[in-house]
């Protein structure tokens, strides 16, 4: 089983020139899989990291990750910090005052490592593209 992609969506999708606001990225983690949180329980574990690429039209601040779910591991002393299901991550966005009006794409990268109840899947980095419009 290869590590499946995580579906990435976002909103809002339209911005005005010069706008400063917050966008929300939605990660849809496949059922049965949990991924390590941005700050995982142990330092050797692979954190979830997401980044969005600035362009000449928009720039992004640092993402704000949600509180993870605590997942105790049976008899061990470890409680994993994970995300599962739908996860929302917020990014500050600044649209340039002279941003080009029209449709644009934003490139992003998501890296993570997930497990099911029976497998630990290798770390993955996926590239994604989000469609937006400057009006």
């Amino acid at each position: 089983m290869e590590t499946p992609d995580i579906k990435v969506e976002w909103d809002p999708k339209k911005f005005t020139e010069g706008e400063k606001s917050t966008i929300e990225i939605h990660l849809e983690i496949p059922e049965g899989i949990h991924i390590q949180a941005h700050k995982p329980a142990e330092d050797l574990l692979i954190p979830t990291n997401i980044s969005l690429k600035d362009s000449g039209n928009v720039s992004f601040g640092q993402p704000v990750y949600p509180e993870p779910k605590r997942l105790p591991v049976s008899w061990s002393q470890v409680t994993l910090l994970v995300y599962e299901g739908l996860v929302n991550i917020q990014f500050p966005i600044q649209v340039a005052k002279n941003a080009k009006v029209g449709k644009h794409t934003i490139e992003g990268r998501l890296s993570f490592q997930g497990c099911t109840d029976q497998l630990c899947l290798p770390p993955k980095e996926q590239v994604f593209v989000l469609d937006t419009e400057i009006i």
Partner: peptide, 14 residues
């Protein structure tokens, strides 16, 4: 094991 496997880390002290 691998170093990135969370369950391996959980089991390591045992």
């Amino acid at each position: 094991f691998t170093t990135w496997c969370p369950y391996c880390s959980a089991e390591a002290p045992y």
